[in-house]
């Protein structure tokens, strides 16, 4: 686990943890659970974490990825933090719409818009 390559990159900007995904597909269950663990650590690190997930590199995701995001959303809520999703391409946004998860998550068109919304 110590040698495992990280699935996400994190930048700290104005008190917000801006997360980008390293892979273009968030599909496989195996990597999804590892991504979930990495993100849960970010929430645990900073109380009331402000987390911004940028989907700008993401071309594909699956229902397992949606499950991971829902779990993350719950963890952020429990930590009294805030979660924003941004830079979601139209085909990926469609997946959120079909599952009505566009109603559950705070989705912003761009990272800039998401930063301003905290």
């Amino acid at each position: 686990m110590a040698n495992r390559q990280s699935h996400v990159s994190v930048k700290y900007t104005s008190g917000v943890q801006v997360v980008e995904f390293a892979e273009r597909k968030i599909l496989e269950e195996l990597s999804i659970s590892e991504i979930g663990e990495e993100l849960a650590k970010l929430v645990a690190l900073g109380g009331k974490a402000k987390l911004l997930l940028s989907f700008k590199n993401v071309e594909h995701l699956s229902s397992a990825a949606l499950g991971m995001l829902i779990t993350l959303n719950r963890q952020v809520e429990q930590a009294k933090g805030e979660l924003r999703l941004a830079d979601i391409s139209p085909p990926i946004y469609e997946v959120f719409k079909i599952t009505r998860l566009n109603k559950l998550f705070k989705i912003c068109a761009t990272t800039e818009e998401a930063m301003e919304s905290f």
Binding site: I88, P90, P91, Y93, E94, K97, I107, C108, A109, S117
Partner: peptide
């Protein structure tokens, strides 16, 4: 059909 994320 794909749509863009509506502006906030």
């Amino acid at each position: 059909c794909s749509e863009k994320v509506p502006p906030s």
